[in-house]
Simulated assay, not measured.
Amino acid sequence: MHKILLYINTINGGGAERVMVNLARALVEAGVDTTLVTSFRGDREYPLDPRVRRLLLEEEQLHQSRLQRNVGRITKLRRLCRQEKPDLLLAFMAEPNFRAVMATRGLPVKTVVSVRNDPEREYAGKAGRLVGKYLLPLADGCVFQTRDAKAWFPEKLQKKSAIIYNAVKPEFYEVQRAPVPGEIVTCGRLEEQKNHALLIEAFARVQVRHPDAVLKIYGEGSLRPMLERQIAALGLQGKAQLMGATRDVAAALRTASLFVLSSDYEGMPNALMEAMAAGVPCVSTDCPCGGPRELFGAELADRLAPCKDAAALADAMERALTGPEDGAAFRRRAAEFAPDKVYGTWMRYLERVMDGKSSNS
């Protein structure tokens, strides 16, 4: 039986955190001895399968300088690898990726890193580029989510990498839709990256021709007060609604006539993938690092709008609302990220790495 350690800072919200929790469950179901390691424990963590062992580098999050934090966590992660003797260490996100590569130097542990966001942002600045261009290629393998993300890194890393989409839970493929005409839905943290302000501005334009349309924004975050002020200033009270966080996204999608992603950048947007799997017609910004463009393909490329362009986003939304109902086309595209397909790809790739055969995969 293979033994794998998964490492991420926390499983407290966020798309990458959810993917890792789901992957841990899939690995243990496949008979892999699976341990999830986090730097610290979060306040509102995703539920972890009880068959997955859980370890912490810190009992409580330590507030230190970046140098102290990284040196301390690399030391603890290396000690853990020596104790646990896993066949492979898999890390998600920029700092955990860097720590994983450094912690396993000279140890008989294969290391796989995974890039979960736009590398132009995740590996920005001189230090970030040093990590991305020179240190990450020391890993035994890497999982990307898009071709654009893969192309950012040196050929040395590309040659031993794989592109694997996120898996969407079966419940989204099973949604029985009962769309309410004009109901527009989005899901995402109320933070700058998601650019809900752009969506609200675009919705105000749509409202002129579709006065019965309603926008429901699911999520919480620091920008709620600002978005509330914007809604009031545009006279959209009761029309643009901040719904708060929800644990039942599938139910929120059931009545949607349209799903809109307005992000400035994404890795591979889980919320958009879930809407596609549910058969909801979608519109998205053509945000780096190419996730929505890759998900939609040429068939649905007219549903993309340039980032930060409210007029173009409004036009795409209006085309979707007034054109033929094409949710089935989105559901067909979503077959690419059905759980069995995605987790089968993960297992085959990780096994190749552990067997020393990841190059040119």
Results as ranks from 00 to 15, higher is better:
Ile8Val: 10
Ile8Pro: 02
Ile8Asn: 10
Asn12Thr: 06
Ala16Thr: 00
Arg18Cys: 00
Arg18His: 00
Arg25Ile: 01
Val28Asn: 04
Glu29Pro: 00
Gly31Phe: 01
Val32Leu: 02
Val32Thr: 04
Thr34Cys: 08
Thr34Pro: 05
Thr34Gly: 00
Thr35His: 10
Thr35Pro: 03
Thr38Leu: 01
Thr38Glu: 04
Ser39Pro: 08
Ser39Cys: 07
Asp49Gly: 06
Pro50Gly: 06
Val52Ile: 06
Arg53Asp: 12
Arg54Trp: 02
Leu56Ala: 04
Glu58Trp: 14
Glu58Cys: 11
Glu59Cys: 08
Gln61Cys: 11
Gln64Glu: 15
Arg66Pro: 05
Leu67Val: 15
Gln68His: 14
Arg69Phe: 15
Arg73Ser: 14
Arg79Leu: 09
Leu80His: 09
Leu80Trp: 04
Cys81Asn: 09
Gln83Glu: 15
Glu84Leu: 10
Ala91Met: 05
Phe92Leu: 12
Asn97Gly: 10
Arg99Ser: 05
Arg99Leu: 05
Ala100Tyr: 04
Met102His: 06
Arg105Leu: 13
Arg105His: 06
Lys110Cys: 07
Lys110Phe: 03
Lys110Ile: 04
Val112Leu: 04
Val112Trp: 01
Val115Arg: 12
Asp118Cys: 12
Pro119Met: 14
Glu120Ile: 10
Glu120Lys: 11
Arg121Gln: 10
Arg121Trp: 11
Gly125Phe: 13
Leu135Val: 05
Leu136Asp: 01
Leu136Tyr: 12
Pro137Gln: 11
Pro137Trp: 10
Leu138Cys: 01
Ala139Lys: 03
Cys142Ser: 07
Val143Asp: 03
Gln145Thr: 09
Gln145Ser: 09
Thr146Arg: 08
Arg147His: 14
